[in-house]
Every structure is written in C-alpha cells, then in structure tokens.
Design a protein around this nucleic acid. Structure first.
Length: 117
DNA sequence: CTAATGACAAACT
DNA sequence: CAGTTTGCCATTA
C-alpha cells in the first residue's frame, strides 16, 4: 500500500524508523530527541507523523516513543488503549495514569547513546 | 494558493 | 512556577 509515499518522504521515515528500532529493550525516547538527532530540522511533530504511518510498517516499536512529558500521548492511536501500556509494562517499564514512571532513568537519547564518533 | 490540523517542544507572560 | 502562545514541517481540506 506504499504508493503515495515519495522517495524523499520514505527516506525520512526510514531514518526515524531506524532510530526507533534501535531503542534498547526496556528503554523509551521522545519525539524531540529523535528530531534533535535528525538535526531538529524536521521538528518533533514530523516524528509523530512518522509514527502515525508506522502502523503500515512492521517491526516499529512505536510504543517506546512518547512525548517529553513521558505521557503516552499516542496510546489512542494503537489498536487498543491498553496495547501501548501493556507493551511497555511487558518490558519492565512502570506506567501509572498513562505516564511513564522514572522516565528520566529509562529515557534513551539517540543524540547521546547513539551518538556518532 | 490559503487555512487548518497534528502521536511535540521550547519560549514567553 | 504554571499556564498560554508561537514555531516546526508536512498533510489535508
């Protein structure tokens, strides 16, 4: 079903997807962190938009991507509201009131962890 | 082509 | 310090 996507957009998606796929088990990241790793050019909203289309791609752990507040802002876009939280808890991440606990501790910043030499 | 929207974030009041 | 406003960039109407 990938026909409306132009080459230029696909490149942006793959770049975001690669980062999301590289998120370690039990870790999470934010849209801004990914945008920052891309050079803060696209903007955090574009990362969220990439996640929106990620549903048509397999192997994209979009549940590991949340906003900077640690809230599961995108849970509503999952098949079920509990799908995202359940997936995160399955990795040992504690969630309460749709918010990730100890977000600062499990936060995975590609700009630092995945930092290029 | 202009206007509005969005799984966000930073700046301003 | 908390609430409000603007900026980002692409898609949709």
């Amino acid at each position: 079903m990938i026909e409306n996507l132009n080459a230029k957009n696909k490149d942006f998606f793959e770049l975001v997807f690669q980062i999301v796929k590289l998120i370690p088990h039990g870790r999470v990241t934010s849209y801004g962190a990914i945008a920052n790793y891309l050079g803060s050019k696209s903007g955090a909203r574009m990362v969220g938009w990439a996640m929106n289309v990620s549903h048509q791609y397999a192997g994209i752990p979009a549940h590991r991507v949340v906003n900077r507040n640690g809230f599961l802002s995108g849970k509503m876009h999952f098949p079920t509201s509990d799908s995202m939280q359940q997936a995160l808890e399955s990795e040992g991440i504690h969630i309460e009131n749709d918010q990730i606990q100890h977000f600062s501790e499990i936060f995975w910043d590609p700009s630092k962890e995945l930092k290029l030499p």
